[in-house]
Design a protein around this nucleic acid. Structure first.
Lengths: 149, 149
DNA sequence: ACTGGTTAGTCTCATAAAAAAACTAACAAG
DNA sequence: CTTGTTAGTTTTTTTATGAGACTAACCAGT
């Protein structure tokens, strides 16, 4: 990768505009964990209620979360991931792998993922969906395609 | 994934503590693109100099970037990724894929990656490094291992 | 010697965002 | 009619960000 495509319109820029604020990805991670209610999120994350309510509103508006009622009188609901939100799983997984590889501290408990398919600890690996070979910075070139004008 | 491991010490939390601030990942992306100098970064990103200099200092201190001189008199250097930094490539790739899938706008140019290995547009896919099968939220369970006390 | 240009910042100040904590609201149990 | 639960909003204080002026080391031109 040697030429720099524009910053605006880059899918990474757009992604971070939506989920790049402080706490957003941690909220999404917690919902993957099954922490789905306002109070539970607030306590598990140690986030202020105001910021939590702002972030949830943004993620709802962005189509990443949806509200699902779990009781009436008073009406209460929990936050669930949409398909769009669930599709952020690879982002969290690659961050988790990176954190485990580069930021893990000795003498501390270690969070890892067990792959239920094969029973092993899953080391996520990125491959090309066409040829199934690993993707590295050197093996890939960024290209801009004009889909119309 | 149904139980919630602790927030502190989670590799995602640790990762975001280091690279989760506004601009950090965009700086790293730009350096992948080959934008390596202070001025070039500042102009390409449209970031304030103060914030850029704070972020670069943090990424240097975190071992993600290193300074490499490219001239003397006056001494000038550029910012390069260390191995630790280069290893963030999958994070950017999964974000790029997500942005392309969910945030791309019609009638706009589209940034994609060409895989030089097979010549196709690379759709990055996450697989288990053991069995090579795709990793989904349902096929994986978070587990905490105590590496000592 | 003086002016302007390049690169890489720092400093200052106005505005925006976040943390902490008090307050609201709808209901249920005792 | 008081306490508890859940889901917030409001207010105040602290911190971060953005815009822009300024510094500093050098070079090239006149």
């Amino acid at each position: 990768m040697e030429t720099a495509p524009p910053h605006d319109g880059c899918p990474v820029t757009r992604t971070l505009d939506l989920i790049g604020e402080r706490w957003s990805l941690l909220i999404i991670r917690d919902i993957f964990y099954g922490v789905r209610r306002f109070d539970a999120l607030q306590h598990h994350l140690g986030i202020s209620k105001k910021v939590l309510s702002c972030r949830l509103a943004r993620l709802l508006q962005g189509g990443i979360l949806k509200k699902v009622p779990y009781q009436q009188k008073p009406e209460r609901f929990e936050y669930r991931l949409t398909q769009k939100g669930r599709d952020l799983f690879p982002v969290l997984l690659t961050m988790m792998r990176w954190g485990n590889r580069w930021l893990a501290e000795k003498n501390e408990s270690h969070l890892h993922l067990k792959h239920l398919g094969c029973g092993e600890v899953a080391e996520p690996k990125l491959v090309c969906s066409h040829c199934e070979k690993p993707l590295s910075p050197a093996s890939v070139r960024a290209e801009t395609s004009n889909s119309s004008g």
